[in-house]
Nucleic acid binder design. Sequence first.
DNA 1: TCATATACCTTGTAATGCAATCTATTTTTA
DNA 2: TAAAAATAGATTGCATTACAAGGTATATGA
Lengths: 119, 119
Amino acid sequence: MSTTQMLKGILDGCLLAIIKNKEVYGYEIAKKLESYGFASLSEGTIYPLLIRMKKEELVTATSKKSTAGPRRKYYSLTLKGEEALQSFIKRWNGLQNNVNNVLRYESDGEETKGDEHGE
Amino acid sequence: MSTTQMLKGILDGCLLAIIKNKEVYGYEIAKKLESYGFASLSEGTIYPLLIRMKKEELVTATSKKSTAGPRRKYYSLTLKGEEALQSFIKRWNGLQNNVNNVLRYESDGEETKGDEHGE
DNA sequence: TCATATACCTTGTAATGCAATCTATTTTTA
DNA sequence: TAAAAATAGATTGCATTACAAGGTATATGA
């Protein structure tokens, strides 16, 4: 129905990409995602995801003092996390191709009787 | 973990696109999706989805005799289904933009301190 | 002291892809 | 004729995961 279902399995790839670029903390990630267009992305989504990724050893976390507010948990990618990011990028690109193929070849009355699509 | 999670909420958009193009039956859709690159897409996914979409009045179904095998259920888009397809395409394009922005701006050490991304 | 912004966490729920399994029909093969 | 395979559809139950709602804690400024 809404956009939220489309995020399943995609959001963690985005987190990995953001964490790879720079050591970041959860609240910061939430703000970043918002600036990238992910409207209405709740922190109730981010924090559990970070905890899950830590459990899966994709990221490590270190607690540091903040200049304002409580201590921040800074996340970094592990080697396993970098591999997961690469794997995500491949799967994401594959998915984009597949979906865009469907939209391209189906959405405008083309008849592609069972032969190959694209080139 | 796998690609399956990334399909959530996306697959139904693909079905709508395929059905809009031409009256089709479930088994045919499964084969088509396979040809578009959606490997290992189970029929246990397609049929419940079609039933759900029918319940939501996005599609209608008519049973017709087959040349080989049991009767086929041919699906067509309703007006509501066409609207849902348009809505899906918008959301899909938005999602693509957002994710690709993250991957583009984060994956290569750019520092984009809180300002706007892209144009 | 109280309000506000920052920062993080937990619980429960709903949505949905899919494996597994089943039924039924037609054609092909032995 | 009997068995196998291909076609076509359906159902049950499970696992994953985004998110709302609510909570905790720290620092700053009025």
